[in-house]
Design a protein around this nucleic acid. Structure first.
Length: 586
RNA sequence: CGGGGCGUGGCGCAGCUUGGUCAGCGCGCCUGCUUUGGGAGCAGGAGGUCGUGAGUUCAAAUCUCACCGCCCCGACCA
């Protein structure tokens, strides 16, 4: 490809809308443009990267025995009614009607539709196990699209679905996919970490998220410094430290006037007591019903855990009117003592708070010397707080650390949730009808692209790993008006393509600085310069983007140098194909 | 949806408080000449219903209201 013919509109200035590096660079390097909030057009360079990511995913899926198919994006509502998710998915689903008023959605995910095919076509244990996958656009009407392609409303996702006869089969399928994921992300040049995660609306039990560790990640994870435990904070268990029982019984309950003291911080200052002695009482609405949630004053409620503990579809903080109705006091003075007519959920740490402080359900008043068991009790005591760095590892007791991550992949053991809802069954050897045991395995393709940029960029631009670079080499002619330079570059350009090295020939009538800056911005792994300096000795200059390493080599040595470094990163076999594919210039 | 902010040539912005030669600047784009190893110089040029619609006024980019779009924080999630 000649740069002069390439649609690669690089931007000198930073678009105001972009906040994080990958978003900025994807716009600046001319990889994509926004069409609407959370909807993007991919330009030639960006699309090449996407195609390469998809190719790697495809190779590894195929190698793991998964079969690719194509599923409809427009899906009938009936299937979603069968699984119950037409309602559960809520506002996030793009819904539409055909001219007859029949309801459809743009598939946000494809469990229903794939289960539908499999239930009609697979009947016998002899046809199992089966793993199928698709790489297609999915649609979610995100509440708030952000960070460019990181959270968009239209996105490409690879989803694989496994169908097994039994739990052992599922374990094998899950393991296959898990290992395929490790290979995929390694080939993409990503450092990832698999963490235990919450299953969310998809449902199911065991699941792991593949996280790219990055400051800009939306997810917070914790990991143990001593063992292999790692989990999304939504899911991470928070075991209370072993507390000694109070040596003496707390003094009797006593009310203190706390005028205008509503927050934990204000209470700490007012009473000169640490937040860990306080019992924070929050009123939530769980599927509409009020619930009181107790955590230690220095802790936060984890709503995902709360949802799970309550078996609720949605939990949200109650509004002020509800709080007053439930507690009989304005916001800021809620407490469990004497609280009536509402379910009370206490975090595991709460009963251990000896001689505590809490709201008295009366304006400007708190109780002190509060004791669990003596003064109040909870209906449920469970882990409902946010795990934080410094907590004890639930497996080995070691210290947990926190980090942020970008979720690029997610593997789930679904079990029979969909196969039972949709009647995906098979007959076993004895002729007994059994539900298939399912798993599903997703990779966000565009998000992965952004994650690669987050991990591979500097102040000058992107630095693509060879495996997914839009082109391997940017061949710059310093002055294309100079015949010897131009001819030498043209000759090298053809040889590189013949060697299978994807090369852009920057033949633009631009100053050298413009070309160098574009090369750095777009992030070609190698830059080759043909200019008067080296040409005098019959040499060319090679610069590696990632390391900055430079070499001046003869033409043949240069080709060999590039071949050695580029070939291993390509394909499972690692061999360059003699090819002119995709190259209109020859 | 709640909170905050922003919509002025392709991009980045000024102008708005104090209505009236304020439709302007930088980059980009086009033409010519000169340049050519890290985003060139000179000269000329194209391009804007100032988000949309009402309203106030002799007069609106500027004031008022409504709507639309976009960005950031939160709830949701791959």
């Amino acid at each position: 490809m000649r740069f002069s013919e390439l649609l690669a509109p690089t931007l000198r200035e930073v678009p105001a809308e972009a906040e994080i590096a990958s978003h900025r660079l994807m716009l600046r390097a001319g990889l994509m443009r926004k069409a609407a909030s959370g909807v993007y057009t991919f330009l030639p360079l960006g699309y090449r990267v996407l195609k390469k990511i998809m190719a790697i995913v495809r190779e590894e899926m195929d190698a793991a025995g998964a079969q690719e198919l194509m599923l409809p994006i427009i899906q009938p509502a009936e299937l979603w009614h069968e699984s119950g998710r037409w309602f559960d998915y809520g506002q996030e689903m793009f819904r539409l009607q055909d001219r007859h008023g029949r309801e459809f959605c743009l598939g946000p995910t494809h469990e229903e539709i794939v289960t539908d095919v499999v239930r009609s076509e697979v009947r016998s244990y002899r046809q199992l196990p089966l793993i199928v996958y698709q790489i297609q656009n999915k649609y979610r009407d995100e509440i708030r699209p952000r960070f460019g392609v990181m959270r968009s409303r239209e996105f490409i996702m690879k989803d694989a679905y496994s169908f097994d006869r039994d739990q052992e089969g599922l374990e094998r399928s899950y393991d296959k996919m898990y290992r395929a994921y490790e290979r995929i992300f390694a080939r993409l040049g990503l450092k990832t970490r698999a963490v235990l995660a919450d299953a969310g609306a998809i449902g199911g039990d065991d699941n792991h998220e593949f996280m790219v560790i990055a400051e800009t990640g939306e997810a917070e994870i914790v990991y143990c410094t001593e063992c292999s435990y790692a989990a999304n904070v939504e899911r991470a268990e928070a075991k209370p430290e072993q507390a000694l029982p109070p040596e003496t019984e707390a003094p009797p309950l006593e009310a203190v006037a706390t005028p205008g003291v509503r927050t934990i911080a204000e209470l700490e200052a007012f009473l000169s007591l640490p937040a860990s002695r306080m019992i924070k009482t929050l009123i939530y609405r769980a599927d509409g019903n009020p619930v009181a949630v107790l955590v230690r004053g220095d802790r936060e409620v984890n709503e995902v855990k709360l949802k799970r503990v309550l078996g609720a579809l949605a939990v949200e903080p109650a509004d002020a009117a509800t709080v007053e109705a439930v507690t009989g006091a304005p916001v800021g003075f809620a407490g469990p003592v004497g609280l009536q007519g509402v379910k009370v959920v206490a975090d595991l740490e709460v009963p251990q708070v000896a001689d505590g402080v809490t709201g008295a359900n009366k304006a400007d008043t708190h109780w002190i010397h509060v004791q669990y068991g003596r003064d109040y009790e909870a209906d449920v005591v469970a882990d409902v707080r946010v795990t934080v760095a410094g907590d004890a590892c639930p497996h080995c007791g070691g210290r947990l650390e926190a980090a942020r991550g970008i979720e690029v992949g997610h593997v789930f053991k679904l079990g029979t949730k969909y196969s039972e809802a949709l009647g995906a069954t098979y007959l076993d050897e004895t002729g007994t009808e059994r539900p298939m045991i399912m798993g599903c395995y997703g990779i966000g393709i565009n998000r992965t692209m952004a994650a690669v940029i987050e991990q591979n960029h500097d102040e000058r631009g992107i630095s693509w790993p060879v495996s997914i670079a839009p082109y391997h080499v940017d061949l710059i002619v310093i002055n294309p008006a100079d015949a010897p330079q131009r001819e030498a570059a043209e000759a090298l350009y053809e040889k590189l393509w013949q060697t299978g090295i994807e090369t852009v020939l920057d033949d633009r009538d631009e100053r050298a600085g413009v070309k160098f800056n574009d090369a750095d911005l777009i992030g070609f792994p190698f830059r080759v310069v043909v200019g008067p300096k080296s040409l005098a000795q019959g040499s060319v200059e090679i610069k590696e983007r990632a390391s900055g390493e430079q070499h001046v080599l003869g033409v043949e040595e240069a080709i060999e140098f590039l071949r050695e470094r580029i070939a291993p990163a390509l394909g499972r076999g690692g061999a360059l194909v003699e090819s002119r594919g995709g190259h209109p210039g020859l």
